[in-house]
Amino acid sequence: MTVRVMLISPAMSTALRAARFDDESGLEAGGVDAARAAAGALQGAGLVLASPSARCRQTAEALGLTAAAEAPAGWAMGSWRGRTLDEVAAEQPEAVAAWLSDPAAAPHGGESLAALCARVGGWLDALADGGPRALAVVEPEVVRAAALHALGGPPAAFWRLDVPPLTATALSGRAGRWNLRLGADLA
């Protein structure tokens, strides 16, 4: 049986606009309005999920979705949480260089890129046992990790993927083989 998974990135939040590692800030008023306007663009799903962050839960709610379960959390950034990359790079340039070049590095004390990709890949493969259709509102880094898993791409490709706010990425697959359709605009 073919499984279809639609990954929705959250609407614009203050952390996203400031390019800060998530700090649990909610959506901006414009982000809520954009999600409400896009509510009719989504097809029904057998399973609706949302990441636990405020911006993902609020996006799901504004889209008129009721999450029955929790989708993977975003990237655990440890001591960098709530800070911008520029701030961290100014104070810890070697740590940032290691983080950007070594998928196993976690100088922030959180999760490495390799661990994030493994966690999201395992979740995605487990969805194949859950039914034919799922829709999940998830952090952009979860979408990127899922895309890498679907394509069997190298971790370095993670840094080359952009996931704009309030877009849909569709995955379909069976027997461990995934196909990917990127970035359908919901607005």
Rank of each mutant, 00 (worst) to 15 (best):
A54L: 13
L42Q: 10
V48L: 04
Q58G: 11
A35H: 08
L16V: 10
L27K: 02
V48H: 01
G40C: 05
D33T: 14
L47D: 02
S53Q: 14
A73Y: 01
T59N: 11
G40T: 13
A50V: 05
T59K: 13
G30K: 08
D23P: 00
A38L: 08
M12N: 00
I8Y: 01
G64I: 14
R17G: 02
S13N: 08
A71Y: 00
R20V: 00
A69S: 10
L27Q: 01
A62L: 12
R57G: 05
E61K: 12
A34F: 10
E70H: 04
V48C: 02
V48W: 04
A35D: 04
A68Q: 15
L65Y: 12
L65S: 12
A50L: 07
T66Y: 06
A62E: 11
G44Y: 09
S53K: 03
E28Y: 03
G64S: 14
G31T: 14
E28F: 00
A11L: 09
A50K: 03
R36H: 11
E70R: 08
R20A: 11
F21I: 04
G44A: 14
D23E: 09
F21P: 03
P72M: 01
A71I: 02
P52G: 06
G31Q: 07
G40F: 06
R17D: 05
E61Y: 08
D22C: 07
T59F: 07
A71S: 01
A29L: 14
I8G: 02
A73T: 00
A50G: 08
